[in-house]
């Protein structure tokens, strides 16, 4: 128990939790290898202490902050969110952390802050996946949100799960959790947060722009060239009784986030 006094979020889903061993052994974290079991095998080499995060761009208080500086003022909260991967599988995860907006506000974003850009650690010594040849991905891993998305109360910084410290394969020591978007938007092991005035580049969009857009909101009506997005396998699944559930628009969080996209053609801004 790393977060004994954590608050309980009243809006958590009451769906069955995905067991801890599945959440921590079935990961997409290509910095540690591209197979689902690779991160659990290799992420032990990630050094999360000491850790620091650069906060810069359109903020009044830029700087390099230690992890302690980042975490200190926040009360930890447990939130059970659905996590929907673009590969058509999903989990239910009890995260521990705090609202992204609360973090950003501390550094006083200026009026030029229209987007938030995030960067993952890029160290081949700690991350064997970065040494693999023939990768179509440009490192470091980068992601981004529009400022109003980032300030939405659902946008979350995760520092733990199941009441324990965040395991390295899940993005220790701190990661983004954006439950209404496909999982790859929830960037792991963040080392830099930059507030910018233009839409920042995002890793999967650079790798395959026809497949992955900037927004990447969960949407069963927008087909993906690789996977039908109408349904998802809720993990753990079993062979003869596959645990299929219908995918919901914005992963079931439409009430909280649909207003952010009013008037936007979601098939165009996928």
């Amino acid at each position: 128990e790393k977060f004994p006094g954590r608050k309980v979020w009243p809006s958590s889903t009451d769906e069955a939790l995905t067991p801890y061993q599945d959440i921590t052994r079935y990961n997409n974290f290509y910095e540690f290898g591209t197979k689902k079991g690779d991160p659990a095998k290799h992420a032990g080499s990630l050094i999360t202490d000491p850790w620091s995060v650069i906060i810069d761009g359109a903020v009044e208080k830029p700087g390099t902050y230690t992890l302690e500086d980042i975490l200190k003022p926040h009360d930890f909260e447990e939130r059970i969110y659905r996590l929907r991967c673009v590969e058509a599988w999903s989990m239910v995860v009890p995260w521990v952390g705090f609202q992204l907006g609360d973090l950003l506000k501390r550094f006083n974003p200026t009026s030029k802050a229209k987007y938030v850009a995030f960067t993952t650690l890029n160290d081949p010594e700690q991350m064997p996946g970065l040494k693999l040849p023939f990768s179509s991905i440009e490192w470091p891993y980068v992601e981004g949100l529009r400022i109003d998305e980032a300030m939405n109360p659902l946008a979350f910084i995760g520092v733990g799960l199941y009441g324990k410290a965040m395991p390295p394969q899940n993005g220790a020591p701190l990661r983004l959790v954006v439950p209404w978007k496909y999982g790859f938007k929830s960037i792991k092991s963040i080392v830099k947060i930059t507030l910018v005035d233009k839409e920042p580049p995002t890793t999967w969009n650079k790798s395959a722009p026809n497949e992955y857009g900037f927004y990447s909101n969960v949407n069963p009506n927008v087909s993906h060239p690789r996977w039908s997005q109408k349904r998802e396998r809720r993990l753990p699944s079993s062979l003869f009784n596959p645990n299929y559930v219908e995918t919901q628009l914005f992963n079931g969080y439409a009430e909280q986030v649909a207003h952010l996209y009013k008037g936007m053609d979601l098939a165009k801004y996928y």
Partner: peptide, 10 residues
């Protein structure tokens, strides 16, 4: 022994 997503593994 197929892990949490047996369909894909198989």
């Amino acid at each position: 022994g197929l892990g949490p997503d047996p369909a894909k593994t198989v």
